[in-house]
């Protein structure tokens, strides 16, 4: 039996799905309204899951105060109320689908020292969600 701890965060940001590898017509056909040149926004929910032994002295896998500070510094401060395509360097060349967002946020959080990062799950809207557990 494995124990994990999950914390949910949220941020609001805009993005545009557009790939330079495709023509305007192909982009329009593939991404539809998500290809709108002005972008559009979502309230994203990010679930961060940590795994590891529960410390008998604290009863915790990791101290949530530390996790909150880490996520605030490495994710929320950069992403909240931003245009992802223009303001997050990683997405200058990569399409900011929520799949790619999961990978980027996972990579930003995997250095958290308090416990092992198990997975990142992102809800782009209440009707779709994406999950990434690293490439190990």
């Amino acid at each position: 039996m494995k124990v994990t701890l999950t914390r949910r965060y949220s941020f609001s940001a805009s993005h545009r799905l557009h790939s330079d590898a495709m023509s305007e017509a192909e982009n329009q056909s593939l991404y539809g309204k998500c290809n709108n040149p002005f972008g559009h926004g979502h309230n994203y929910v990010v679930e961060v899951t940590l795994a590891g032994a529960v410390d008998p002295a604290t009863g915790m896998i990791a101290n949530l105060v530390d996790l909150d500070a880490y996520v605030q510094k490495h994710v929320l401060a950069d992403f909240d109320h931003r245009y992802i395509n223009e303001e997050i360097p990683a997405f200058k060349k990569i399409v900011p689908t929520t799949e790619n967002l999961c990978i980027e946020i996972y990579n930003r959080l995997k250095g958290f020292a308090g416990a092992k990062l198990d997975r990142v799950r992102i809800e782009e809207t209440s009707r779709n969600s994406f999950e990434y557990s690293g490439n190990a």
Partner: peptide, 10 residues
Amino acid sequence: APDLFADCVG
């Protein structure tokens, strides 16, 4: 709370 949960998974 709605933003915090623990899982035990077999």
